[in-house]
Design a protein around this nucleic acid. Sequence first.
DNA 1: GCAGTGATTTGCT
DNA 2: GCAAATCACTGCG
Length: 229
Amino acid sequence: MEIPRAWRPLRRAFFEAPAESVAPLLLGKVLAHQTADGLLAGRIVEAEAYLGPHNDPPDPAAHSYRGPTPRNAVIFGPAGHAYVYAIYGRYFCMNVSCEVEGRAGCVLLRALEPVAGSERMAANRGLGPGAKERDLTSGPSRLCQALGLTRAIHNGLDLLEPDSPLQLFDDGHAVGEVLVTPRIGIHDAIDWPLRFAVPGHECVSGPKKLRDPQSAGGSSSIFLLKPSG
DNA sequence: GCAGTGATTTGCT
DNA sequence: GCAAATCACTGCG
């Protein structure tokens, strides 16, 4: 499968904004990896914002918290680039840089709904062709494994450059209400409502109360955001 | 279904 | 030297 003509590239200005504004808008957009063997693509159904040190208060869970280093340089660079880092020795996670060059901020892609190449995603994940979509791309490192994303090859790529093997598109799919919750897997700023997901979607990661608003109980840091506009 | 735990690289202090 | 934006496997209820 090739990139359909109807898929429109996102604009740089879309990402030149605070990560907490960009993250919910990324839901429904398509991440596409063009490989020699064909297209691997998935719709973003879960994302987390990480804020730069300019934010008040600064975000202690962000890799940019202590200022620029060689590792996090991409987050301080221009918007719309891929920040891929290794974690726990065996996995990768992928972010999209936000804000203008010189200011940090990024969005961690946490889950996708497979759109193209799901059989190869299953193979990349070490699963059979009948694997459930949830087992392919539900989790930040699972989606990197499914799409074959690594730090060595993909860190720093411009996601808005037409020749890039890794790009982001708007295919016209509309997302309704957005589930907002605290972020997952961090130990600082655990109450900040910076995780955004499609409510009840099968491919969203995490425990049920962080996937389905009906299961969230009365927690004040878990709520539904109405569609804007 | 849930909690506990091991694997194992990287970058920063 | 250590902590990390994780995952999969195990054992148990």
